[in-house]
Design a protein around this nucleic acid. Structure first.
Length: 424
DNA sequence: TCTGGGGTCCTAGGACCC
DNA sequence: TCTGGGGTCCTAGGACCC
């Protein structure tokens, strides 16, 4: 039986999450900012209509905020992550197989729909998610993931679709693809799009009809897969459980320039703790660790960037051990007199935690007690919220912390931040 | 004052080996 | 006149995604 793919994608997800808990935001232009309140990463349709571009620096929005009563929020990942889980668990009930592709998107492999029209089915998914969570989603249906992505984009673009669109069996597919720029195809970024334009290929239809040899040569096998998918031949399978990450990064920009080693050291310890937590979450240990520091390249200040790599004596996921190494490495690359903007750690050469290659010369095996301590820390933080328990090296005041001046409450994950209903 | 964070995959080219 | 031929591994860099 031929597989049919569906892509379920939340509309303006972060904005929609904020609106669920503040109905007065309906109809108002709303934007959500990236970490450190840097750039715009989510826009309501009203904000898009006002011309706010994706990734616009926050300070450039100030005039619109004033003139159009635009609402601005810091990113609230505790809220978005929890809302995402709710949406995904609902969508999962609609298909035998699902791939969670990102925080706000999932691919479905629709099995036998028993005579139900795919569009009616998509409309049911959409309506159920909306009623149970308040989040609006769009659904695109097609014989390949690339076309399902495209169908979803078109469903969002054209309000007449009612949020759902199917591309299989459409006789007007050619003219639909005529109306899509190559850069709007999944897998074609700005570089490829510019290269294609130089060769006279500007639309999804022209890309679909380009020669295999040309595409293979200029866009590698990845591009060729994309083109085959545009032709309706499925080359990109649905992926099940995400494989463990091969590299784990934890880094942040500071809310203000940091000069002192002591403050940098707190930040490095914090990010190391977070990376170690991610490592344990996927039951892994790391063999290699990098620590880097950098000044702000957007300023005229003297610039400095450095990175240091350390092979660990044995693969580990122990926060205390990793923090000890990270702080020692930081001291080796720290230079006084610079205004630092960012630091971070990168863990790699990741192996499963249960099959550790022990260091022949290690003083002792990693103790059971250490592992139990880590597990307990993780459980407490999962239950009470991140940062309920932490290492003193991470600092208490954390004056260097990123800016989050417009943060909404963690309505769904903290008892003390629940939404309050007021009788009118 | 002001510009995010976290990933994956593919290829070319050099080092090294037989 | 002429300086072999492959194979593998590693790294850096480039492209993409959200």
């Amino acid at each position: 039986m031929k597989t049919i793919f569906a892509l379920v994608d939340c509309n303006n997800f972060y904005v929609s999450c904020e609106r669920v808990f503040d109905p007065s935001l309906a109809g108002r232009p709303v934007v959500v900012l990236s970490n450190n309140d840097g750039n715009v990463v989510a826009r309501s349709n009203e904000a898009k209509a006002l011309g706010v571009p994706f990734a616009a620096p926050a300070h450039e929005c100030a005039p619109l905020v004033k003139r159009h009563n635009m609402a601005v929020f810091s990113s609230n990942y505790a809220l978005y992550g929890d809302m995402s889980q709710r949406v995904m668990s609902i969508v999962a009930g609609f298909a035998p197989e699902m791939e969670i592709y990102s925080i706000d998107e999932a691919f479905l492999s629709l099995g036998d729909l028993a005579g139900v029209d795919p569009l009616d089915y998509a409309a049911r998914i959409r309506e159920t998610v909306r009623r149970w969570t308040g989040i609006p989603v769009s659904v695109g249906i097609a014989p390949t993931k690339t076309l399902a992505k495209l169908a979803n984009r078109l469903a969002k673009r054209d309000p007449a679709c009612g949020g759902v669109l199917a591309l299989d069996g459409r006789s007007d597919l050619d003219s639909i693809l005529d109306g899509v720029a190559t850069g709007d195809v999944w897998g074609v970024g700005p570089r490829y799009s510019a290269m294609l334009a130089r060769h006279g290929i500007r639309t999804a239809r022209e890309l679909r009809d380009a020669s295999d040899a040309f595409v293979r040569k200029r866009m590698t096998v990845t591009g060729l897969r994309t083109v085959h998918e545009l032709r309706g031949r499925s080359c990109i399978e649905l992926e099940g459980a995400a494989p463990p990450k091969k590299g784990i990064v934890s880094s942040r920009s500071f809310g203000r320039p940091v000069v002192e080693l002591a403050e940098l050291s707190e930040a490095v310890a914090s990010y190391t703790a977070r990376a170690a937590e991610k490592l344990r979450c996927q039951r892994s240990a790391a063999s290699l660790m990098c620590v880097f520091v950098s000044t702000n390249p957007f300023r005229d200040d003297p610039q400095y960037y450095n990175i240091i790599t350390r092979r660990l004596p044995a693969p580990t996921a122990d926060t205390a051990e990793l923090i000890r190494h990270a702080r020692a490495d930081l001291e080796r690359i720290y230079r006084p007199g610079f205004r630092y903007k960012k630091t971070g750690v990168f863990l790699s050469e990741i192996v499963p935690a249960d099959s550790l290659q022990l260091d022949l010369f290690a003083a002792a095996e990693p103790s059971e007690e250490r592992a139990r301590l880590m597990a307990t820390v993780d459980i407490i933080n999962a239950r009470l919220g991140r940062g309920a328990v932490y290492y003193a090296a991470e600092g208490v005041r954390k004056a260097w912390r990123m800016r989050q001046e417009r943060l909404s409450r963690r309505f769904t994950t903290r008892w003390d931040e629940l939404p309050v209903a007021v009788a009118g």
